[in-house]
């Protein structure tokens, strides 16, 4: 799992059929000190995250598990919205 900050939205009407009802968000990966680490990615939102929120996301083929479909070409999905981080 990785920490990230939602920085924007992507709209795509033409997409793989099992992805029809899912929102896709731009996520900037961050570390626990809120510094950017790496390039922004796009992740499917499964928890209703909004721009500016700190979230955590999962990658690779596990990313399809939170979705209510058995198969979807998704390699990142947001699975939680962070309330606070203490290190």
């Amino acid at each position: 799992m990785f920490l990230g900050k939602v920085i924007g939205n992507v709209w795509a009407t033409r997409k793989y059929e099992t992805l029809k009802s899912f929102k896709m968000l731009f996520v900037q990966p961050i570390n626990a000190q809120n510094e950017n680490v790496g390039e922004p990615i796009i992740a499917v939102d499964t928890v209703g995250a909004g721009t500016g929120e700190t979230i955590f996301y999962i990658t690779a083929s596990e990313a399809v598990i939170p979705l209510p479909v058995d198969m979807a070409p998704v390699d990142a999905s947001i699975v939680g919205i962070v309330d606070s981080i203490n290190t």
Partner: peptide, 20 residues
């Protein structure tokens, strides 16, 4: 695999990236 064709992007927090 290409799994979506983008219609529109909206990245209001782009400045956040530039500041950092």
């Amino acid at each position: 695999v290409i799994m979506a064709i983008v219609d529109k992007l909206d990245v209001p927090l782009k400045e956040l990236l530039e500041q950092q």
